[in-house]
Design a binder for these strands. Structure first.
Length: 216
DNA sequence: GCGACAG
DNA sequence: ATCTTGTCGC
C-alpha cells in the first residue's frame, strides 16, 4: 500500500540522508534585476512531463521555456518526491541554454524529514542554487507573524511562510546553495507572488512540446 | 493501533 | 498530481 517496495524504502532513506549531508546552506544574494528559473511537473497516463521557465524579475518577462518527458517509474510517496520528479526536473533544467541565478522548485527544500526535499536533491545534482516552494507542509509548523512567518522544525527555523491576499498559504525553504536570507530576498522581489513562478512552470509542464522547443 | 503525509 | 460540473465573485 505504501507504493514503494518496503525493503527499498530504507535504502532510499539512506540515499537521501547521504545527500542531505552534502547540502550547503550559504547565502546567495538576490536583488533585482535578476533571472530566476521555475520548474514543475505534470502527468498524463504513465507519462511525466517537466516544464521550466526562465523569468526576469521584477518585470516577470519570460526569456526561455523548456520541457522534458519521461516515463514515470515511481509513485508519489510523501518524503520521496525526488524519486518521482527528480529525473524529470533534472533533465528539463539541463536543456536550458540560458543562465539564471536560482532555481525555484515546486516542493520543499530542507523543510523535510531528512532535510533533503526535492529542491535540495535537484540543487545538488545540478550544482545550482535552489529554493523550494510548497502549498502545504510536510514537516514542521508555521509561526505566523502577520501575513508572513517562519517554518519551525524542532527549535530550528527551516523556512518561511507567507499568505496571499486570497488566503492561500505557501511555504518556502532553502534547497541548496541558498539560505533563509535568500528566501527573504526572493519574497522581497516577488512579494506574495513567489508561487506564481511555479504556476508558470506548471503551465509549461502541462503544454505538450511544440515541434521545436522555444528559447531566446 | 491511529493519524499525518511536498506532488 | 489528476479526473470534471457547477458555482461564486470581480
Amino acid at each position: 500500500m505504501s507504493g514503494l517496495p518496503q525493503h527499498y524504502v530504507g535504502f532510499f532513506e539512506l540515499v537521501q540522508d547521504a545527500l542531505s549531508g552534502l547540502v550547503r546552506l550559504e547565502h546567495l544574494h538576490v536583488s533585482p534585476p535578476v533571472k530566476v528559473c521555475a520548474v514543475d511537473a505534470s502527468y498524463s497516463d504513465g507519462l511525466g512531463r517537466a516544464g521550466c521557465v526562465v523569468v526576469s524579475l521584477p518585470d516577470w518577462q519570460v526569456h526561455e521555456e523548456r520541457s522534458a518527458e519521461l516515463e514515470v517509474l515511481f509513485p508519489y510517496v510523501p518524503g520521496f518526491l525526488y524519486l518521482r520528479e527528480g529525473p524529470l526536473v533534472v533533465e528539463c533544467v539541463r536543456r536550458l541554454r540560458g543562465e539564471f541565478s536560482v532555481l525555484v522548485v515546486n516542493g520543499h527544500g530542507v523543510a523535510h524529514p531528512r532535510r533533503a526535499g526535492l529542491a535540495s536533491v535537484v540543487g545538488l545534482l545540478l550544482s545550482v542554487p535552489t529554493v523550494g516552494v510548497a502549498g502545504s507542509l510536510l514537516v514542521g509548523e508555521p509561526r505566523w507573524r502577520g501575513s508572513v512567518g517562519d517554518v519551525v522544525l524542532g527549535e530550528e527555523v527551516v523556512g518561511r511562510c507567507y499568505r496571499t491576499p486570497g488566503g492561500r498559504e505557501y511555504f518556502v525553504s532553502p534547497g541548496h546553495l541558498t539560505d533563509l536570507e535568500t528566501v527573504d530576498e526572493l519574497i522581497d522581489v516577488t512579494g506574495t507572488r513567489l508561487h506564481e513562478l511555479v504556476k508558470l512552470a506548471h503551465v509549461t509542464a502541462s503544454r505538450r512540446p511544440s515541434s521545436r522547443s522555444a528559447g531566446a
